[in-house]
Each structure stands twice: as structure tokens, then as C-alpha cells.
């Protein structure tokens, strides 16, 4: 019993002492808090000043960028003029530099593998590839630019992506040819691969690590079709009916030569003019069916005329 009385006395003493200490601590804390708040206020003021400066600087930078852009435009215009005058002089075939022919096919992946050594310091590709100095390059074809999570892209590429840049054979070729012309602020410090054949080979190698159209038919194309310009006198072209007969075999996978039309319309015995007009409407994507847009899209004016000439008299 007596020990418990002693303990409770000591307990009371301890409580009193603790109370005094608590009051003192609270006072000191309040003082420190006031000091800290004053310091924070000062920091905030300083921050506001810095922010103002930053936005001022950003404006200057933007002005500079706009000026640089203008300079580039002027330089490009100058180059175009020079090029135009040169082309006029040697109008002979310079198809090597014609963008339509640059990617007419895909190159040699073996040579592309060797060329990739120029890239492998920064970019990984293949099983287990990860982002390094540059982003990994798996599934590159058909990908939206600047879209790999966890990689910090330059503002330039991010802007281009916002504007709809996607990586296809043509855009990749342009980018690799001259990265800084393509995206001025890119952090890819690579001078560019100027040789068209080399770029085709490199792309053929990179293509191996993207979806293959054979396995996933909606995967990105590997070839670029011929560009057809619309001839104002297309209706006057006399069609080669024998060529039309060969070409018609692509049509008769769906359209029946007998003229039957369940689900898919008949295309036989049409007046040539109607046939040609309809095909050009698909070619120019005025008519909506995507299968027909594709098929008509790569037929030349002569080929459309040839089909019209063949189908106008077809009777089975």
C-alpha cells in the first residue's frame, strides 16, 4: 500500500512539471512559427519576382523562336528558289531526290542492321528494349510521335505530336534524313542520314520490330503507292480493254461478272463515262466505301479507262 501512495505523490509532481514544460514549449513554438511565417512570406515575395522574370524570359525566348522560324522560312524560300532555278536547268531525271520515289519500296534490312550501329548508342530495339538516352524503338511504325510513357521528349516533338505527327515510313525517313530541320528543338543529336538508299535500309531494319501487316492486317504500310494526279481530260482517254480484262480480276473477287448484285453492286454494262466518273469519285474519296477508295486510289487514269472499256461490253 505505502509504495502506491508514494508513487501517486511522485506522479502528481511529474504531471505538474510536465505541464510547466508544455506551456514553455508552446510559447517557444509560437515564436518560431511567427519567425518561420515571416521567412515564408519573404520567400513567396521572392518567388513572385522570379516568376515575373521567368515569364519575361519566356516571352523573349518565344520571340527569338519566332524570329528563328522566320529566318528558317526565308532560308527555305531562298533554297526553293535556288533549287527551282537549278531544276529548270537540269530538268533531266533527278528521281533520286523525288520524295515520291524515295520510299517506293522498302530496303535491305541486313544493311539496315549495320547502319543501326549509328543509333544504338542511344536507342534500344528488340526483346526487352528499354528507354535509354533515347526512347526504345519497338512498335515504332504507326505510333503517334512522342507517345512512350516515361520518356521525356523535347517540346518540339511534343508539339509536333499534338499537331498529329505519326511515325510512318515517310515521316521517319524525313526525320532521320535531317532531324533538326524536321523538329528544330529535338534532343536527338544526330546529324542525319542523307543517303536515300541507306534510309530505306535502316527503315527496313526498324520495321522488323513493329507489327507485321501479315499478322495484323491493319498494321502500318511498308510501301508508298504511286501518286496519281487527276487529268482534266480523263474522260477522253481510250481504254485498253485487254488490260481492263486483267485488271477486272481484282474486281470480280467481289463484283460478279454475271451482273448479280446481292450485297455488292453490279458493275457490268455501265456506260464508260459513268464508270469512269464513279471510280474517280472513289479515288478522290468523294464516295465513302473504304474498300473502293483503296482499290480506286491506286488505279491510274489509263487503268480506270481500261476497266470501263472492258466492263461496258461484258456479258457472260
Amino acid at each position: 500500500m505505502s509504495s502506491s501512495v508514494f508513487l501517486s505523490g511522485a506522479g502528481i509532481a511529474a504531471l505538474v512539471l510536465a505541464g510547466a514544460v508544455a506551456v514553455a514549449t508552446a510559447n517557444r513554438d509560437r515564436q518560431e512559427l511567427a519567425t518561420a511565417e515571416a521567412a515564408i512570406g519573404a520567400v513567396h515575395a521572392e518567388r513572385d519576382v522570379l516568376r515575373a522574370k521567368v515569364s519575361e524570359l519566356q516571352e523573349t525566348v518565344q520571340e527569338h523562336a519566332a524570329l528563328e522560324e522566320r529566318i528558317r522560312e526565308l532560308e527555305a524560300a531562298l533554297q526553293d528558289r535556288d533549287a527551282a532555278s537549278q531544276t529548270a536547268e537540269d530538268a533531266a531525271e533527278d528521281s533520286e531526290d523525288d520524295p515520291a520515289t524515295v520510299l517506293a519500296g522498302i530496303g535491305d534490312a541486313e544493311n539496315g542492321k549495320t547502319l543501326f550501329r549509328q543509333c544504338s548508342g542511344c536507342h534500344e530495339i528488340g526483346a526487352g528494349a528499354e528507354n535509354g538516352v533515347g526512347p526504345h524503338l519497338n512498335l515504332l511504325f504507326g505510333r503517334k510521335a512522342a507517345s512512350i510513357d516515361g520518356y521525356r521528349y523535347s517540346d518540339s516533338l511534343m508539339r509536333a505530336a499534338t499537331n498529329g505527327l505519326e511515325w510512318h515510313a515517310d515521316t521517319l525517313s524525313d526525320y532521320i534524313a535531317d532531324p533538326r530541320t524536321f523538329a528544330s528543338g529535338t534532343r536527338m543529336s544526330y546529324a542525319g542520314m542523307k543517303d536515300d538508299a541507306d534510309r530505306r535500309d535502316l527503315l527496313a531494319f526498324l520495321r522488323i520490330y513493329s507489327d507485321n501487316p501479315a499478322d495484323i492486317p491493319e498494321a502500318d504500310p511498308t510501301a508508298v503507292g504511286t501518286d496519281h494526279s487527276v487529268d482534266p481530260e480523263i474522260l477522253a482517254i481510250a481504254g485498253d480493254a485487254e488490260y481492263g480484262e486483267y485488271l477486272s480480276s481484282e474486281c470480280t473477287t467481289c463484283h460478279q461478272a454475271s451482273g448479280s448484285d446481292d450485297g455488292i453492286p453490279s458493275i457490268v454494262l455501265w456506260p464508260e463515262e459513268d464508270f469512269v466518273t464513279a471510280m474517280h469519285a472513289y479515288k478522290e474519296k468523294v464516295r465513302p466505301n473504304p474498300v473502293m477508295q483503296l482499290i480506286a486510289g491506286r488505279l491510274s487514269n489509263e487503268e480506270i479507262a481500261a476497266l470501263a472499256a472492258y466492263f461496258k461490253d461484258l456479258e457472260e
Binding site: G105, I106, E218, T222, L294, G297
Partner: peptide, 21 residues
């Protein structure tokens, strides 16, 4: 639903030209 494409012959292979899905 459908998916389709056109193809051309290159020296190396039959290469996809354009497609839709």
C-alpha cells in the same frame, strides 16, 4: 467489321501500300 489493304510487288516482297480498318 472489315480490314483491308492494297499491295504491290517490290524486289524484296509483296509490300503493303495502304489500308483501312
Amino acid at each position: 467489321v472489315k480490314v483491308g489493304a492494297t499491295y504491290e510487288a517490290t524486289d524484296e516482297k509483296i509490300a503493303k501500300v495502304d489500308g483501312f480498318v
